[in-house]
Design a protein around this nucleic acid. Structure first.
Lengths: 197, 197
DNA sequence: CACCGTAGCACTAACGGTTAGCCTTTTGAA
DNA sequence: TTCAAAAGGCTAACCGTTAGTGCTACGGTG
């Protein structure tokens, strides 16, 4: 196992951050579509190929928190207190995520995303990935009497809650309202699975 | 209003169909990524620009039934019998759609889609559009005591049901299972809205 | 019937994201 | 010190997509 001790990792992270910061700045200044990859690379003083070795595509420049997001969701399931039921734990995390991205400081970024079809599309497929990761985490929880289908369903619903609430006038109220519905769905799913086996 | 009487319309439809058929044939033969737009156009004996005047993008060549799909969903809501409740009507339509695309004849196409990330991504954003159209239809139904948020939520859940069921081993059972959950969510949403107003 | 507006289509050329191939420099470890 | 691998760079191309331009045939109107 080769442990990268220090400098290399730091330099790589610095390059990555420089690219992302530069890109975000240019995008916010002049719009996503009006800024080309070659321009971002030039401004960040790296080669185009270097940029693509750090980011899978142009859209990924805007969604850096991608993995954070996914980890927070799965950990809300796998890392909850032993006796805490699933749905409240999920609601807490979704609420935190919604708050995080409706905060004033994040507003310009989300305005950029909402106004750019390519970015909206990318975010949609990101959410799908997150839903799948979440479904796996839910299905793997030993204390939950859920079918595979029900696990996937609850995961989708939770991601829907995030996605819908983010766009509502009162995001926190929307989270509460949608999770009331998810809770009901959850109860039906668990009671059905218990009684049939 | 200029009614295109006959020949022009037929020629246009013929060109469109020829392009779509050619594209699908080539994609199925050699894979989506291995076939370029220029090649499809050449094989269909049209110019590249003509191809793009009929289809919004390469992915759209594979999803011809797009508008059908959306219309069937919204009509399941707006066109149901006056006394039929929403959820059973939705379930019926979703089940029909799932059956339609898990039929044997459709198998090669869905195999192609499932094996091509670009097409999966495209389908995801299609579904989102359909969910929004469905949400509008649900919100517009005069007999439903739903908040705007609840309408959007039910619409998303219904689309999730389609999307999830399509990939399950037993699609019809999955539709039944998921719609049991949606029904529970629905009841919570309606009862809350009735009691609070 | 002749005429004209327009829809459909073609062609060229380019733009922008992305990748392959190959080379140089830096870095960590033996 | 030496070496393998990682990081970065340069060039050139591929591919989807679009703008610009013009031609042709169709369908409605005088």
């Amino acid at each position: 196992m080769v442990v990268q001790s220090g400098r290399r990792e730091r330099k790589k992270a610095a390059t990555r951050k420089k690219i992302a910061d530069t890109a975000l700045r240019l995008f916010l200044e002049r719009g996503y579509d009006a800024v080309g990859i070659r321009e971002v690379a030039a401004e960040a003083d790296v080669a185009v190929t270097t940029l693509f070795s750090h980011f899978a595509g142009k859209e990924a420049l805007v969604f850096e928190q991608d993995e954070d997001f996914e980890q927070r969701l799965t950990q809300a399931v796998t890392g909850r207190a032993p006796d805490e039921p699933l749905i409240p734990a999920l609601r807490r995390e979704v609420l935190a995520l919604v708050r995080h991205c409706t905060a004033d400081e994040a507003a310009p970024i989300w305005h950029l995303i909402d106004g750019t079809p390519a970015l909206r599309k990318y975010e949609e497929s990101m959410r799908l990935r997150h839903a799948e990761a979440l479904a796996t985490a839910i299905a793997a929880a030993p204390d939950l009497p859920l079918t595979a289908t029900a696990s996937r369903t609850i995961a989708r619903f939770a991601i829907d809650a995030y996605s819908l609430a983010r766009e509502e006038a009162d995001p926190e109220a929307a989270v509460a309202e949608i999770f009331r519905m998810i809770e009901a769905a959850w109860e039906v799913a668990t009671s059905a699975s218990e009684s049939s086996e």
